[in-house]
């Protein structure tokens, strides 16, 4: 991990096919900056991505990466990190990937608290399939498959995370590049599961949750007296409907990552040429 790693080292030579103006450009740039800033390099970094516009990120970044099945990126990240805790593991996805098809894994990844970061590009719509309601879409948000709106309450990912025992919850905004990179960096540095929900507007299919909307409604927690170690205060902020907050909503200072609790010390990749020493004792147990 040389100190001369630049964030552009995390960039692949593939040009993104996201729509011009897509929030995901800013989200990805922040991720790359945060990775470089935390002293990582592409050869010790593993990025896992799900399916959707957000899932393309592994192609545009340069690192060890897997672009997997819809909704299952988090379990892949858990497996990578447990098999080699020396790696920097970052999981990226969208609101559909994380809170619809992958909602079950989200809750359990939060609970498990493996030391990795989870960056969700939340645009409140399904963009890749050309504009259907997502789990975070507003109740009255009209789409091709929900002409009257979904008529369901949107999922509140941060409240969901808190309910599952999260140790790090932050809200970011792709357009605020400096702040966004800082928040991802904090998630990486956090000892445990660092969840960053990023408002990453879809300029093509979502004319409600736009750059302007987020710019007008987001208040930076750094400009308030919010105590990030106070979970009740965090829940109050998360549940507010009039204002949305950007910044670290909650962090548990005493967080100990799961793999540490489990006593995993190093990479599991290296094994002997034959059965491990002492293996015959396993047979003798059956006497």
């Amino acid at each position: 991990m040389s100190s001369d790693v630049r964030f552009t080292d995390f960039k692949s030579d593939k040009q993104p096919t996201w729509c011009p103006g897509c929030g995901d450009f800013g989200t990805m740039n922040g991720m790359m900056k945060a990775l470089a800033e935390t002293g990582n390099d592409p050869d010790n970094t593993f990025v896992v991505a799900g399916i959707g516009c957000s899932g393309k990120i592994g192609t545009y970044m340069h690192s060890y990466a897997l672009h997997g099945v819809h909704g299952r990126a988090l379990p892949v990240g858990v497996g990578v990190k447990m098999a080699n805790p020396n790696l920097e593991v970052m999981v990226a996805g969208g609101d559909g990937d994380g809170f619809s098809i992958g909602a079950g894994h989200f809750i359990h990844a939060v609970r498990r608290n493996v030391d990795m970061s989870y960056v969700v590009m939340d645009n409140r719509i399904y963009g890749l399939t050309k504009g259907q309601a997502s789990p975070t879409s507003r109740e009255d948000f009209e789409t091709s498959t929900s002409p009257e709106g979904p008529q369901m309450a949107p999922v509140n990912p941060k409240a969901l995370a808190m309910a599952a025992g999260a140790t790090f919850v932050a809200q970011s905004f792709s357009s605020d590049s400096q702040r966004h990179a800082e928040l991802v960096q904090e998630a990486i540095e956090h000892d445990g599961f660092g969840f960053v929900n990023v408002y990453s507007p879809c300029v093509t299919f979502n004319d409600v949750d736009t750059y302007d909307y987020f710019r007008d409604s987001l208040v930076d927690l750094d400009e308030t007296d919010h105590d990030r170690h106070d979970s009740d205060a965090a829940m109050d902020k998360i549940r507010e409907t009039e204002t949305e907050y950007m910044g670290v909503l909650y962090q548990d200072e005493d967080s100990v990552p799961y793999e540490q609790r489990q006593g995993i010390e190093g990479s599991m990749a290296e094994i002997p040429d034959g059965a491990p020493e002492g293996a015959m004792d396993l047979v003798r147990e059956f006497y």
């Binding site: 897997l66 497996g79 990578v80 098999a83 080699n84």
Partner: peptide
């Protein structure tokens, strides 16, 4: 679903 994906992740990391 998670079990096989975790195992897949570990395998990508080089573990059997």
């Amino acid at each position: 679903l998670a079990a096989i994906n975790m195992a897949l992740g570990a395998a990508r990391a080089g573990a059997r």
